[in-house]
Computed example of a mutant assay.
Amino acid sequence: LPTTVYPEIIKAIKARVPQMHVHAFSPMEIVTAAAKAGVSIHDWLVLLKDAGLDTIPGTAAEILDDEVRWILTKGKLPTSAWIEVVETAHKLGIRSSSTMMYGHVDNPKHWLGHFRVLAQLQDRTGGFTEFAALPFVHTNSPIYLAGVARPGPTWQENRAVHAMSRLLLHQRIPNIQCSWVKLGDQGTVAMLNGGCNDLGGTLMEETISRMAGSAHGSARTVSQLHAVAALAGRPARQRTTSYQNVP
């Protein structure tokens, strides 16, 4: 598709449903589209914002350490490029989530470095709405099948990463999200009791984790998520993408 399609899609959405919040385009997609369009990342983001883009997902972060990223992606999106996209977006008023995928070729040293990068970026921009920890699902992953990655994080590592994120991002990123898609209901309950205050969304379709081998489903109803929160002894309320109360 020509790159002009993307802002036009946003404009069409806003024209049809003006109140719709458009949360779209990962840092990898933004870098690729800007290069294809022959413009800077800044100018591409301005174009998307003018079209109506509200926020972007902070995905494709994996581990923000080029030693690890080279093994995972062969340098497809260096740490500096991820930071440039997200920082530029924040400075333009486009907020984002933040993520970390762990449990593959990483170790606690890499987690600490990742959290420090996020904390420093948040200190500069204040643009992160949440942090989501994403356990590596190994079953059908090529990097695991090739014998490079380990078979996902241990239970102790899951607990440690979510707790570390709460402690190391304290007073910077207030919302720590766990992934019921990757952890399942019981894992989600444990993380809600170990640093998390957000169990994610209902979703409509989830393909990445499912294709990698996750067996926890790809959609939940609102009542099902309330039930998971109740198992953790936590009240639940619906929120917007930017963590406001739903009108």
Rank of each mutant, 00 (worst) to 15 (best):
P7F: 10
E8Y: 00
A12Y: 07
I13W: 12
V17K: 14
A24I: 09
P27G: 12
I30H: 02
T32I: 08
T32A: 14
G38M: 02
D43F: 05
W44A: 12
V46Y: 10
V46R: 15
D54A: 10
I56M: 13
P57G: 06
I63N: 06
L72F: 01
K76R: 15
L77E: 04
L77D: 03
P78I: 05
P78M: 09
I83M: 12
V86C: 09
E87L: 06
E87R: 12
A89F: 07
R95G: 11
S98V: 09
G103L: 04
V105K: 04
N107E: 11
N107K: 08
H110C: 03
G113K: 06
H114F: 02
H114K: 00
A119N: 03
Q120D: 15
Q122N: 15
T125V: 13
F128Y: 13
E130Q: 10
L134F: 09
P135A: 04
V137W: 03
H138S: 08
N140H: 14
N140T: 03
S141D: 15
R150Y: 04
R150Q: 14
P151V: 01
P153T: 10
T154I: 08
A160K: 13
V161K: 00
L169E: 10
N175K: 01
I176A: 05
C178R: 01
V181N: 05
V181M: 06
V181Q: 03
K182L: 01
L183D: 08
Q186I: 04
Q186T: 10
G194L: 12
G200I: 00
E205H: 08
E206H: 08
T207A: 08
S209E: 12
S209L: 02
R210C: 04
G217D: 09
T221F: 00
Q224C: 01
H226S: 00
A227S: 00
V228E: 02
L231C: 13
A236R: 01
A236Q: 03
R237D: 00
Y243V: 05
Y243T: 07
P247V: 13
P247K: 13
